[in-house]
C-alpha cells in the first residue's frame, strides 16, 4: 500500500501543526506477524460549514454549543481526539441560498485557523457546486495538502486538475465495487495526478444497510493491492459516521420496536460497530460523527496495534 500524508507543516508550505500519514501496509489489516503495519488507521470527525438540518437530533445535541460555527466545531472535534477533520460544505448556506465560493473559502480558512489538524474538504455532492466551490477552496489554500472530494467517475476532471495545480490530494469515491474503484483511480492517475495523492473511498453501507458489501470490497481491494495491483494500493477512506447516522436506528428515537433498546446507546453502537467492522477490513481513515464512537474506535485501534509481532 502506498503511504500518503495529509496536511502540510509550515516548513512544507502549509500551516498545519500536525500531519497525518496513512497507508504503507504490507499485510492484511493488523497482521503484524507477516508484514508491516507502519501507520495505524486514523479517525476523522465530520463537521459542516453550518448547522446541518438533516442530522440526527442526538448529534445536534452533542455538538450543540459549536454547531453554528465551523471553527469552534473543528476545535471541539480536535479536543475530542480526532486525528483529522472532514469539513463537508453545504449546498444551501444559512440563508437558504447557494453557498458561494467566497463563503466556502471563508469556512475552510476559519477551520484551518481553529485547528492544527489536517483537513479534508467535501463539496456538497452536486457536480457543478462541487467544482466551483472546491476550485475556490483549492486555490485559496494552495500548499496545505488538503484532500478534496468527492471525485466520482462522472465528475473528476475539475477537482483533480485543481488539486494537481495547488498541491492537494483528492478522494475518489465509487459505489461499492472493486472494479469501479480501480477504474476511477486509473482515470484520475491518467490525468497525471500521482498515485500518492489519491485516497480511495470505496463507500460502504451502514450496519444493516449493506455493510457487508463495503466490508468485502475493502478486503478485496487490499488483497489485490498486496498482490501487486498498483491501482488498488491507495489508502482507503470510508464514512461510517455518515452511513450509520443515516440509518433509522440512529436517527429515530420514537415509535421504534422495543427490541431496539436505548436510543443514544444504540446509535453509538451502530456507528462504532460499523466503523470497527470496516477497520477490520482495511480502512485507513474512518470518518465519524459522534465523539463517543470516536473514543471507542480509537481505543480499539490502539489495542489492535498493540499486538506484538507474533510468530506461529
Amino acid at each position: 500500500m502506498r503511504t500518503i500524508t495529509l496536511g502540510a507543516l509550515p516548513a512544507e508550505g502549509g500551516t498545519r501543526k500536525r500531519v497525518v500519514t496513512v497507508g504503507g501496509e504490507t499485510a492484511m489489516p493488523f497482521m503484524r506477524f507477516e508484514g508491516e503495519i507502519p501507520n495505524p488507521p486514523v479517525v476523522a470527525i465530520e463537521i459542516k460549514d453550518r448547522k446541518p438540518e438533516d442530522w440526527s437530533p442526538l448529534l445536534i445535541e452533542t455538538w450543540e454549543d459549536v454547531i453554528d460555527d465551523p471553527a469552534k466545531w473543528a476545535a471541539a472535534a480536535e479536543a475530542a481526539g480526532a486525528d483529522l477533520i472532514v469539513l463537508a460544505l453545504s449546498l444551501p448556506n444559512r440563508n437558504g441560498e447557494p453557498t458561494t465560493p467566497d463563503e466556502a473559502v471563508a469556512s475552510v480558512k476559519a477551520v484551518l485557523s481553529a485547528t492544527g489538524l489536517p483537513l479534508i474538504v467535501f463539496g456538497p455532492g452536486q457536480a457543478e457546486a462541487d467544482n466551483t466551490l472546491l476550485v475556490a477552496v483549492s486555490e485559496a489554500t494552495k500548499g496545505e495538502r488538503l484532500a478534496l472530494g468527492i471525485c466520482e467517475d462522472k465528475n473528476y476532471r475539475t477537482i483533480v486538475a485543481t488539486a494537481m495545480a495547488n498541491g492537494h490530494l483528492v478522494t475518489a469515491r465509487t459505489p461499492m465495487d472493486v472494479n469501479l474503484a480501480k477504474q476511477l483511480n486509473i482515470l484520475i492517475s491518467d490525468m497525471g495526478l500521482p498515485l500518492d495523492r489519491i485516497l480511495m473511498d470505496p463507500t460502504t453501507g451502514a450496519l444493516g444497510y449493506g455493510i457487508e458489501y463495503g466490508f468485502s470490497v475493502m478486503e478485496r481491494l487490499r488483497l489485490a493491492a498486496l498482490q501487486g495491483d498498483k491501482m488498488t494500493q491507495l489508502p482507503m477512506i470510508v464514512t461510517p459516521g455518515f452511513e450509520a447516522w443515516k440509518a433509522k436506528e440512529s436517527k429515530v428515537g420514537e415509535g421504534v420496536p422495543k427490541a431496539w433498546g436505548d436510543w443514544l446507546n444504540r446509535a453509538i453502537n451502530w456507528e462504532t460497530l460499523t466503523a470497527m467492522t470496516l477497520v477490520e477490513s482495511g480502512a485507513d481513515i474512518v470518518v465519524l460523527r459522534h465523539p463517543e464512537s470516536l473514543k471507542r474506535v480509537k481505543s480499539a485501534i490502539d489495542e489492535l496495534m498493540a499486538a506484538k509481532a507474533f510468530v506461529s
Binding site: 465495487d177 472493486v178 472494479n179 469501479l180 480501480k182 477504474q183 486509473i186
Partner: peptide, 12 residues
Amino acid sequence: EAFMSAMFLPHT
C-alpha cells in the same frame, strides 16, 4: 464481476 471489470477501455 468479469463484466464490471470489462466495462472500461480496454479493461480495468
